[in-house]
Design a protein around this nucleic acid. Structure first.
Lengths: 344, 344
DNA sequence: AAATATGATGTTAGCGCTAACATTGGGCGG
DNA sequence: CCGCCCAATGTTAGCGCTAACATCATATTT
């Protein structure tokens, strides 16, 4: 068959960095001992360890994580999937995740879906292909194939932000209740003509869940729940614009319930500029509990969600699972808090 | 020697997911053909490709990226190292990087140093171990061993945010010039008693570079350049607090040059609450060009840096390098812009 | 002192994929 | 209709590491 003229030919790629074997030779031990120094230093005699560490230093060894992960069929990666990086909320969640995972020596593999579920499925596939140790994703709604893939997967999966029927672990809060709670507060304050205003409520369906809570509470009081929605992502300017549109469309509005604090803050700052008094002429409230809402005057009335805590708790749950510690519960309700400011 | 009784024993791990070979068998081709369908579909006949794709679907194959990276000695990872995730600036840079790299099918491997250079070196080591295709890091200052490791490394390295003597590629702006420019503007407006106020200026030495530009410009005008500094990270509340401390320590201050927009915004909002007129009683300016600075009244006078553009340009440079396209220059000065608001 | 347990290190055989080369079967010019 | 070329596919040998088991020296038990 093949013309076996190649006794010693095949060469591979350039790099040729020092490998474990080079270190082993240098230190006068076997490569598995070097591997142990790296992975479980306690299982090696101190003298050996020092010898190996010196050798590592001398040859300038850089560990090949890829080979290690292939051999052990696991990486110290945690896949994290969020729908957006422009929304501070997810940034803060990522901070919580990152800080906690780092403590335990795990790396985050970050994916951004742009509120696109197909993209989410692709990311899940890629991340599983990296032998991730666990996966954290946002929300409970996924493509069918994505859900079934994750259910079959043998490692921890956490769905965050929202509570409900989850694949595995679940850390979040009830957005329906949050919307309901704020609507209740507004009614209590005597407001009756209340408009809900949000952005991108198809992709960001949690904002819609809050609207539903809001609407149902108003319905119970026999009050209409008009909804205005915009396509672009929330920013301060859009908040100001939204306030004007609300007043145009429903001139007798008494209060605006914004889907998030960025819009609400933008509305308040714009109102100040226009000489519209908040809450005198119109009351404003939001959702999230961003620092900027508490820095402006009037201070924003809002619902604060513990964003970094969601990240921290989700990460702790994952670590517990990985380390085989038992969990109190597979679902954690982090709750929310009505923060009463001066704006409503 | 070894009691060779084990003809077919050694089993490995649990998972046993379908592999390329399973797909190959199912499709009636060899595994390399499946590999080609995945990596270079154009090199396979359409009929074959469809057959293989159907087989992939049928067996529920999930690609093992780890094995692929080991065999090809390269992953589609780009290592990205930033000093902080609490600072919006880096978030926006990451957004720019992420959006661009995603277009080309690269994944970001994100590391956070918390302004600790030793941590940076560790992250660099880990990320090189993942066979990253390139590395993006923040700033020009690193540990000696880190710099030399990166210089020996054969793949693209970009240092961002700051301009100067770089390892390989460099995308950023001159912070010294930015500070100088703002000081020049303040002098031009007739201010003479100007205080510079910042946070964490040891770790975040770019804020110090801006101070040095500021100080040198004032010196040229024969004016003192007092500096006040705080240890915690910038937030709105600290900005208000800082304004009060400045007025306490230097009661006749005419203008405060804040190291960033978060502090400056916090100061303006706090001043409004206290009834201090800006710029009537005291002028305020910042650095960064955050949206919030332009949403408040008075609008903030600041220096806008193109944060997302830094990310996008850095990513484009890297991609060009990886694809072997020639670069116009290894260094890109993205510049900055004096944004004149009403606050100074 | 023999038997057994324990701790430290070594040997072997992959993990699942792809680079490098080999083979095969038309298509096509002469 | 022969030889050559090229496109499509196959064969082989690792990539660098670690799981699983093996070995050996020393400590502990009986």
């Amino acid at each position: 068959m093949s013309n076996k003229k190649n006794t010693e030919r095949r060469r591979r790629r350039g790099a040729n960095n020092p490998t474990l074997d080079d270190v082993a030779k240098e230190a006068g031990v076997s490569s598995i001992t070097v591997s142990r120094v790296l992975n479980s230093p306690d299982s090696v005699r101190e003298a050996t360890r020092l010898k190996v560490e010196a050798a590592i230093e001398r040859v300038g060894y850089v560990r090949n994580m890829v080979a290690g992960s292939l051999a052990s069929a696991s990486s110290r990666f945690i896949a994290v999937i969020v729908p957006s990086l422009s929304n501070v909320v997810f940034i803060e969640v990522i901070q919580g995740l990152q800080a906690t995972f780092e403590k335990y020596g795990y790396q985050i593999l970050l994916g951004n879906t742009d509120y696109n579920m197909q993209r989410e499925t692709e990311l899940v596939n890629t991340f599983l292909g990296w032998s991730s140790s666990a996966l954290v994703t946002t929300g409970l709604r996924h493509e069918e194939s994505c859900t079934s893939l994750l259910k079959r997967w043998q490692k921890p999966v956490v769905e965050i932000m929202e509570l409900g029927d989850a694949i595995d672990l679940n850390v979040g809060l009830s957005h329906y209740d949050a919307g309901h709670c704020m609507a209740h507060y507004l009614l209590e304050q005597g407001y009756r003509r209340i408009v809900y205003a949000g952005t991108q409520m198809d992709g960001n369906y949690r904002a819609r869940l809050r609207y539903e809570g809001h609407r149902d509470r108003l319905a119970k009081a026999g009050v209409e729940a008009p909804l205005l929605e915009w396509a672009p992502a929330s920013d301060f300017e859009l908040g100001g614009h939204a306030l004007e549109r609300v007043l145009e469309r429903y001139p007798d509005t008494q209060a605006v319930h914004f889907a998030d604090d960025v819009l609400a803050t933008g509305a308040i700052l714009h109102a100040t500029r226009l000489g519209i008094r908040v809450p005198g002429d119109i009351a404003v409230c939001g959702f999230t509990g961003l620092p900027i809402g508490q820095a402006i005057s009037p201070r924003l009335t809002t619902i604060s969600s513990p964003r970094e805590a969601i990240g921290r708790i989700a990460a702790e749950q994952v670590i517990a699972r990985i380390e085989g510690r038992p969990l109190d519960a597979d679902q954690v309700d982090v709750g929310f808090e009505l923060t009463i400011g001066e704006s409503a």
